[in-house]
Measured scan of single mutants.
Amino acid sequence: SFQYVPVQLQGGAPWGFTLKGGLEHCEPLTVSKIEDGGKAALSQKMRTGDELVNINGTPLYGSRQEALILIKGSFRILKLIVRRRN
Rank of each mutant, 00 (worst) to 15 (best):
S1R: 13
S1L: 12
F2G: 04
F2H: 10
F2A: 04
Q3W: 09
Q3M: 10
Y4I: 08
Y4L: 10
V5H: 06
V5N: 01
V5A: 06
V5T: 06
V5C: 09
L9F: 01
Q10K: 12
Q10F: 11
Q10Y: 12
G11V: 00
G12K: 08
G12V: 03
P14M: 00
W15R: 02
G16C: 03
F17Q: 06
F17W: 07
F17E: 04
T18M: 10
L19A: 04
K20V: 11
K20S: 14
K20G: 14
G21L: 02
G21N: 06
G22W: 03
G22H: 04
L23K: 15
L23T: 14
E24F: 00
E24I: 02
H25I: 13
H25T: 13
C26Q: 14
C26W: 10
C26A: 13
C26Y: 13
E27L: 12
E27A: 13
E27G: 08
P28I: 08
P28Y: 02
P28W: 01
L29I: 09
L29E: 00
T30V: 12
T30L: 11
T30R: 09
V31E: 02
V31D: 00
V31P: 05
V31M: 02
V31R: 03
V31Q: 00
V31N: 04
S32V: 10
S32M: 08
S32Q: 11
K33R: 12
K33H: 14
K33C: 12
I34R: 02
I34V: 10
I34K: 04
E35Q: 13
D36I: 11
G37V: 04
G38Q: 01
G38A: 02
G38E: 04
G38Y: 00
K39F: 05
K39L: 09
A40K: 00
A40W: 02
A40P: 00
A40L: 04
A41Q: 13
L42C: 10
S43Q: 06
S43K: 15
Q44W: 05
Q44D: 12
K45H: 11
K45E: 10
K45M: 12
M46V: 08
R47H: 10
T48S: 10
G49Y: 07
G49F: 01
G49A: 05
G49E: 08
G49M: 01
E51P: 05
E51D: 00
E51H: 07
L52A: 05
N54S: 07
I55P: 06
N56T: 01
N56Q: 07
G57S: 06
T58R: 12
T58P: 00
T58L: 09
P59L: 06
L60H: 00
L60Y: 00
L60V: 13
L60G: 02
Y61F: 11
Y61D: 15
Y61I: 14
G62Q: 04
G62S: 06
S63G: 09
S63Y: 12
S63F: 09
R64T: 08
R64G: 07
R64V: 10
R64K: 13
Q65R: 13
Q65D: 13
Q65A: 12
E66Q: 14
A67W: 05
A67K: 05
L68M: 14
I69R: 15
I69L: 15
I69E: 15
L70E: 07
L70G: 05
I71D: 01
K72M: 09
K72Q: 13
G73W: 04
G73T: 11
G73A: 12
S74K: 06
S74W: 06
F75C: 13
R76I: 02
R76C: 08
R76L: 08
I77W: 09
I77F: 10
L78I: 08
L78R: 01
K79H: 14
I81D: 03
V82G: 02
V82Y: 00
V82T: 07
R83K: 13
R83M: 04
R83Q: 00
R83I: 05
R84Y: 14
R84S: 02
R84K: 09
R84D: 01
R85P: 15
R85N: 08
N86C: 11
N86D: 10
